[in-house]
């Protein structure tokens, strides 16, 4: 597959935040395939000094925020993003960046203005399966990936940014919703690159490489 050897042959240190949100095997393996040295952090003390911080996750916002708080992660994540250090949020890890979730009313991290909304215009919910991701602008994360490439989604809610300029990509499922956001070294994707075959692995590799370059 699309393995990347980082600069100088050294593996890129990446930390995945483990807050009990299901399958971490896939994202860890995708990162390893991309040339990362992956560490799993169950508490804030275990984050270490990575080049890239990854917050994955599926499920509801309120219990996820509870678990992030219990692990002491919230201030660390806020400081990390405020310093514009490389960050990847996947699915729930993207939704938590907004101010609040309509799903359960949870106050979330508030890194991005806007909130998480239900896909009420969708013909089927949850939105499960492969769908086209339409980029609004070029971004290094999508280097080498065809326009409107398919990625795998599994969700019923999506972030609705108040600031239009952070919208990197959109997807259509009875309605248009935000499929990816980008701001500086922050990237959030609603789809699961770790479950999106070759293009997904390429995106993960691009993100790891960008993080190594930014370090």
């Amino acid at each position: 597959m699309t393995g990347v050897v980082a600069r100088g042959g050294a593996r890129v240190p990446v930390t995945v935040v483990d807050y009990g949100a299901g399958n971490l095997v896939s994202i860890e393996q995708a990162l390893v395939t991309a040339g990362a040295d992956v560490r799993r952090a169950a508490t804030v003390a275990e984050i270490g000094q990575p080049a890239l911080l990854v917050v994955p996750g599926v499920g509801a916002s309120a219990p996820a925020m509870d678990r992030l708080r219990a692990g002491g992660f919230v201030p660390a994540i806020l400081d990390w993003i405020a310093a514009d250090r490389p960050f990847l949020g996947i699915c729930l890890g993207l939704q938590l960046l907004f101010e609040a979730s309509d799903e359960d009313g949870a106050a979330t991290l508030g890194v991005l203005r806007g909130h998480t909304v239900r896909l009420d215009g969708a013909p089927t919910l949850p939105h499960i399966g492969w769908n086209q991701v339409e980029r609004r602008f070029d971004h290094p994360a999508f280097a080498g990936i065809a326009a409107r490439a398919d990625f795998y989604f599994v969700h019923s809610y999506a972030g609705a940014p108040a600031d239009d300029e952070v919208v990197l990509a959109e997807t259509e499922h009875g309605m248009r919703f935000t499929a990816a956001v980008a701001r500086g070294n922050l990237l959030g994707v609603q789809f699961h690159p770790e479950r999106s075959g070759t293009d997904g692995l390429r995106l993960v590799a691009n993100v790891v490489r960008s993080a190594a370059d930014a370090a």
């Binding site: 597959m1 095997v25 393996q29 995708a30 699961h192 479950r195 999106s196 075959g197």
Partner: peptide, 11 residues
């Protein structure tokens, strides 16, 4: 399951 997740990057 784990060995599959490590080599087939689909759901």
């Amino acid at each position: 399951v784990e060995r599959t997740a490590r080599r087939a990057f689909i759901p």
